Amino acid sequence: MNISDKFSRYARWVDDKCPLYATLAGVTATDDHLLDIASEASAGQPEPELLFAAVHSLLLQGRDHPLAQFYPTCNRNGSDDDPFPHFREFCVANEDTLRSIIATRRCQTNDVGRSAILLPSFEYVSRIAEHDLLAQIEIGTSAGLNLNWDQYQYEFGEIGQVGKSDSPVTITTEVRGDLRPPLSQDLPTITHRRGIDLNTLDVTTEQDARWLHALIQPNQLHRHDQLTAAIEIAREKQPRLIEGDAVAELPTQLSDAPNKADLIVFSTHVLYQLEKSMLADLRSLLSNHSTKQPVHRLSIDPDEGLGRPTYRIVTFKEGAVTESQIAQFESYGSWIRWQGS
């Protein structure tokens, strides 16, 4: 798929989420100059998301330009004008900076709404686990905000609230379907937290915190508020993050995990970015380690992208493998549909 088609596809996907981005993406798909700027993205990185995030980050940094009036995150009053001429002018005026950002940054949307699928999934693992304690390693951790999933409060509609009642982060999720997800007021005990990413983000720095905000569409103010609160928690309870390739780093991290705990290696929207050979290597690593302790792999299907992904569990125990689908969920946690037993 060429870069123009990617912008057209993105415009359709984002239409009901952020009309501003849908409009800009649709016209950018026909603008060779803007497409050339976006093409600075490194291999495997989504050009539309990076271009819009790079622009958003400069506006959040305080660049004074009429384009800011279309961005609610910039505290402007809004405008009924056509945003694209302002967008194009801004991109051309800041071309060198945008090219540098797009070439060096990655799409690492660390949305804590995705913890809505982690909470019942970890509870599910705790009920089939051999040990009372769980150790967790996240692949594609970004800033590690979802490693703190047990530090948040959750509202599951008629089911009610679970989690930390005094948390500044409240994740509201609609439960669809006939099956109730496994939930408990007594959350599983996490004894070990690690995150691996090619480019870890440090939320104690203004630059990385701003980049996380830049990756969220500017009209999604609730998600921005939620991110701000999650960053506050992470600055107090910052899990250890390891920068590097997952296949290269995972053997050491598996060995460092406590033995008297079931080990959970999880990810959300990461696997679709990995080559099949890397996925096979990851599976082999987990299978080999399962001769020492049970390993549970939680992830979406690697062939699924954003939208309505399916979450699945693969359990490795002494080299044997069992696999099942446990839920569908909206990419940012607005609803889940439990499918597990």
Rank of each mutant, 00 (worst) to 15 (best):
G144W: 03
I117E: 09
I139V: 15
R76G: 00
L179R: 15
I159R: 14
T109K: 10
I300A: 12
P218A: 12
S8I: 01
A129C: 06
T310N: 10
I137L: 12
S290G: 08
Y152M: 11
K17L: 09
L198Y: 02
L227T: 04
F266Q: 15
R127V: 02
I139N: 13
R106F: 09
F84W: 03
L298K: 02
Y152I: 04
N75P: 01
A248C: 09
A214M: 08
S334Y: 09
W149E: 07
Q69H: 00
N148K: 08
I171D: 06
L227K: 08
S324V: 05
E138I: 04
D186E: 11
L263R: 14
L51P: 05
H269R: 11
R114T: 01
F84L: 13
L215A: 10
K237P: 00
A43T: 13
D15S: 11
L34M: 07
D281N: 08
V169R: 06
D5W: 02
N77E: 07
E249Y: 01
D82T: 00
P309Q: 09
S79K: 01
V321I: 15
I117V: 10
G163A: 10
Q253R: 12
G78M: 08
T172H: 04
L35A: 09
G157K: 10
S299H: 09
D245E: 13
Q136C: 14
C18V: 03
Q61K: 05
D202H: 04
H192C: 10
K276W: 04
V295F: 03
T191M: 05
L227R: 11
G140P: 03
A68S: 11
L286C: 14
P46C: 10
